[in-house]
Computed example of a mutant assay.
Amino acid sequence: MSVDEGLLAVDQHAIALTGASEDYDELLNMVGNRRFVLLGEASHGSHEFYRERARITQRLIDELGFNAVAVEADWPDAYRVNRYVLGQSEDTDARSALSDFRRFPSWMWRNEDVVNFLNWLRARNDAHYPQMKAGFYGLDLYSLSASMEAVVRYLDSVDPQAAAAARERYSCFDRVRAEGSEYGHAVARDVMVPCEDEAVAQLVELRRLSAAALARDGLAAEDEYFFAERN
């Protein structure tokens, strides 16, 4: 396709955005009954892309019943936001809920457009029954120290003895707690012994403990266990 042909195709099919509520009607018609919609942006941190992505997401939730926003962010950091938008945290506002986003580039999520969207989502969720609420989740599993801390914090609340055992297992990572990449480099250079056995043992123990917690506390425990297991 030549440049001229490309420009002609854009001219024939592009839809001008005017800021009107019907801007994305055709897009929502294309979505139909699909379960997943993937939204990207040409650059991270651009206000216009974030604003329009939020507008589309709001309509997907309100009009088509989508109930999960999954973003390119670390799982434990985003789950704090999830608790906030579901009304399950001690954070009093969206800015506080985003405060765990400290790893570069923190501005990807700690910005005004995301704050505005989260304020909308919290208000929208507050007006709906639990089964109609929409959550906010991170897709990335890059964190090391934050994930270990989240597992221990969960176990502290359900089984302090298991939490103590988890701390002992995770102490294997003490030399490289800051970054997962540092651990990978150290193991690759034979500077330290891998911690795989300890990590697997902790996951097995976590799964063993889950049955009792689920039987005792039901759905709320299931959500918290799922969060801990993902870490």
Rank of each mutant, 00 (worst) to 15 (best):
R59W: 09
R59L: 00
L60C: 11
L60T: 02
L60H: 06
D62A: 15
D62W: 00
D62R: 14
L64P: 07
L64H: 09
G65V: 02
F66S: 03
F66L: 08
F66C: 01
F66P: 06
N67L: 14
A68Q: 13
A68S: 10
V69Y: 07
V69A: 08
A70W: 01
A70F: 10
A73P: 11
A73E: 01
A73M: 02
A73K: 08
D74Y: 02
D74C: 10
W75Q: 00
P76E: 08
P76A: 08
D77T: 11
A78N: 03
A78W: 06
Y79D: 11
Y79W: 13
Y79C: 07
V81G: 03
V81A: 11
V81N: 06
R83G: 13
R83D: 14
Y84P: 09
Y84M: 02
V85R: 05
V85S: 01
V85K: 04
G87Q: 09
G87I: 02
Q88D: 14
S89P: 10
S89W: 05
S89V: 09
E90N: 13
T92H: 09
D93F: 11
D93R: 13
A94D: 11
R95E: 15
R95F: 10
R95Y: 05
R95T: 14
S96I: 12
S96F: 01
S96K: 14
A97E: 05
D100F: 00
F101M: 00
F101I: 01
F101R: 10
F101E: 04
R102A: 01
R102C: 00
R103I: 04
F104T: 02
F104A: 07
P105R: 06
P105S: 13
S106M: 09
S106F: 09
W107F: 15
W107K: 08
W107L: 11
